[in-house]
């Protein structure tokens, strides 16, 4: 049963990177297409549109973060530890918030970024406002990250 616990923990790490990563890839990809379009007209806006493209990139990093925390807690990285089945399942459950909130928030943040790029293309001075709107979407990824991190920390301290 020890092995199964480890399996679920690694599955959790995989979920976190996998789904949040997909979301970020889609979001960044969408924003990148729009950014490239703006650059054909005005290459000097590169710095501005790049920021918009990077906004949906964070979910993937949050996923990586949670995955890394799980891996180091169960001893895949660093010293090996014993993981019970229950602990493994708990780690798996901990990864779910960032996996799915990350997936969907990154996609929608990407859409929002595309719109923001459109705003900046026409009104470069409205950058500050345009950047806040995609940042609103990110809130939910942050909340998910928070719960995932707190859960991972909590599971590590649970003795089972």
């Amino acid at each position: 049963m020890m092995d199964l616990g480890l399996f679920f923990a690694v599955l959790g790490a995989a979920f976190a990177t996998f789904f949040a990563g997909i979301g970020s890839a889609i979001g960044v990809g969408k924003a990148g297409v729009a950014a490239a379009g703006v650059l054909t007209e005005d290459p000097s806006k590169f710095g501005k549109v790049l920021i918009f493209q990077l906004l949906p990139a964070t979910q993937g990093i949050y996923g990586l973060l949670v995955a890394f925390l799980i891996l180091s807690n169960v001893g895949i990285l660093g010293e090996p530890k014993d993981v019970t089945l229950l602990q493994g399942l708990l780690y798996f459950a901990s990864s779910l918030p960032i996996a799915f909130a990350g997936l969907f928030s990154a996609i929608h943040q990407g859409k929002c970024s595309v719109a923001g790029i459109g705003t900046v293309a026409k009104k470069p001075d409205q950058m500050g406002k345009a950047i806040i709107l995609p940042a609103m979407v990110e809130t939910y990824a942050i909340l998910a990250l928070l719960i995932s991190i707190l859960s991972v920390f909590g599971v590590a301290n649970v003795n089972m």
Partner: peptide, 18 residues
């Protein structure tokens, strides 16, 4: 909403450790 102070702070620190 201010929990983002914790979340982003942790993100910076943990990624640096990674």
């Amino acid at each position: 909403s201010y929990s983002r102070l914790l979340a982003l702070g942790l993100a910076t620190g943990v990624i640096a450790q990674v």
